[in-house]
């Protein structure tokens, strides 16, 4: 067991060395004539405008949360899948309950329009807001 994970450690260290060595070789071989323009941030040839470290709408914020839930679900499924054939029907029923709860969650998020890139406004409550004239897909 510890031999296996020792292999990973050696591989990771070797990976670092294998990246570092060509970079070192490059620093020996390659020319280095830095100018002010060369060190500018690339913006299609224009003079760059401001920093890129700004607040912007990353859109998939909710998707990231859903990803977390489903990724944890996948982790739960792994040990279950290993023993599934031995346990048979009981394991299937139990995992079905777990999965159905998650599927309901997915359906809820889907109807809420959180999976869409551009969020629809009132699809899920069309009846309630009909009076105040908010249209879909606005």
């Amino acid at each position: 067991m510890y031999r296996d994970f020792g292999t990973i450690l050696v591989a990771a260290i070797l990976g670092i060395i294998m990246v570092a060595v060509p970079l070192f070789l490059q620093s020996l071989v390659a020319p280095s004539k830095k100018t002010k323009e060369k060190l500018e941030t690339y913006e299609c040839g224009e003079v760059s405008e401001g920093s890129a470290w700004l607040q912007f709408n990353i859109r998939f914020y909710v998707i990231a949360l859903i990803f977390l839930i489903f990724d944890v679900e996948v982790v739960f499924l792994f040990p279950w899948a290993v023993v599934f054939k031995d346990l048979g029907l009981l394991a299937m029923v139990e995992m079905s309950i777990f999965l159905v709860i998650l599927i309901i969650g997915l359906a809820y998020v889907w109807i809420k329009s959180d999976l869409d890139w551009v969020k629809r406004k009132v699809k899920y409550a069309a009846g309630r807001y009909e009076r105040i004239q908010i249209k879909e897909n606005t």
Partner: peptide, 21 residues
């Protein structure tokens, strides 16, 4: 291998170098 290695002056140098690793 013989290309000039450019790190933009506005970049976060440490993370910039760390990423390929």
């Amino acid at each position: 291998l013989t290309k000039e290695d450019i790190i933009p002056k506005n970049a976060d140098k440490l993370l910039f170098i760390l990423a390929p690793f």
